[in-house]
Simulated assay, not measured.
Amino acid sequence: MIKINISKAKREEVEEKHYQYFKDNFLDKLISLSKVEDSFRDFYRFLLLNIEQIITGRPKELNDVIIKIDNGFPYLSSLFKKGTRQRSGHEKKLINKLNLKNIFNYDAFLKPDPPDWGAYQLTKNLNVNICPYCNRQYIVTYHSEEKKVIRPQLDHFFAKSIYPYLALSLYNLIPSCNICNSRLKRDTEFEYKKYIHPYEEGFGDSMKFSVKIREEKDINNYNDLKYLDFFFGESDEFDIKFKAGKEVNNEFIKKAENNIKVFKLEELYDFHKDNVAELIKKNMIYNKDRIKELYQNFNQLFNSKDDIVRMIVSNYITEDNLDKRVLAKLTKDICEELNLFDYT
């Protein structure tokens, strides 16, 4: 999992546009409802009082809103957290009467061609091209002349089925791939303190890919295995796992493990063992002397030896560039663990 990197200037620009979109389209509805004399008036007034925080607040601020609603409106909170099938007929009528789907109208936000702002404009401005949850899929945004839209799916970190008042919250909309959003996470209830939020952090060096060579008891034909095959990139008798970095607190480890479990990262990355094998073979071909030779002979093409390594592995291997190409974190972590392409 990688962090979504946005510059301060771009973040402020997106926040301003997103909040303006809400004010132009839905704020009047909330104001009108907050004046109605019924049992929901206090709830509407709470939403109105905290609306800017709800729409553009950072993940922790959104979690604070959830806590305030849990404490201040426990009946409504419990009602939201009930599944549709669990709600009685009376409870379903109450949910419909609340009209939150019209106040925080996510379906309208998804329309391909709104005048100034919507899902397409958001993902285009964020420029997130790799799924932050898995780092395995491209999620580019493209708008053709025929006005057909290609864009990432938007995952609600706090599920909109449970927290309908966060359906349009900027930092609750995570650009992601179809597999992570629709096939794996779906309506899983993510809690702020139990899962890593990609707008705040990624795995970084705190949780890294690691190679685990299988033990004898895990291999069917152990007698046929040559121990050195792995180090020549000729064996697939290993698994790709995660390991915690040094001096990582238990809270982070538990959160990372929850993300790994929900998005099936170890299971899915086991399909990329060939990438590890290729890295090992390339390391044998492009040893320290070969990298030095390339740098000397083609210095007009490369600004540094890091650029040569990036060409060799066909990927980025620095933390601040992991969002530019799929499998970049796997490449970086395995190169570091196996000490590949050491040109120092």
Rank of each mutant, 00 (worst) to 15 (best):
E91Y: 08
E37N: 14
K101A: 12
E237V: 05
T141G: 09
H18G: 10
D333H: 03
Y19K: 10
L322A: 01
R151N: 07
K10M: 10
T84Q: 14
F298Y: 14
E251G: 09
R58L: 14
K3C: 05
D113K: 14
E267D: 13
Y106G: 07
I55E: 04
D28Y: 03
D307S: 12
T56Y: 04
G89S: 13
N339A: 14
Q121V: 07
E267R: 10
K93D: 11
K147I: 06
E61R: 13
I308N: 04
E267Q: 12
K254M: 12
K111M: 11
L110R: 12
I51L: 12
S32V: 05
R136F: 00
S176G: 11
I280R: 02
N99H: 01
R186H: 11
Y133V: 08
E52P: 01
N178P: 02
I4S: 05
I174E: 09
F252A: 05
N127H: 14
Y19H: 07
C180G: 05
E215W: 00
Y106Q: 07
E293F: 02
L294D: 07
F232M: 13
N181I: 10
L30G: 06
N178R: 04
M207R: 00
L225Y: 10
G245S: 07
K243E: 15
N105V: 01
I150M: 14
L33C: 03
A244W: 00
N249I: 08
L340N: 06
T84P: 14
K254T: 14
N5F: 12
I317A: 02
E200G: 01
R87D: 07
E146K: 15
T188Y: 11
Y222P: 04
F104K: 04
V65L: 11
F263K: 03
H90G: 05
I4W: 08
L265A: 04
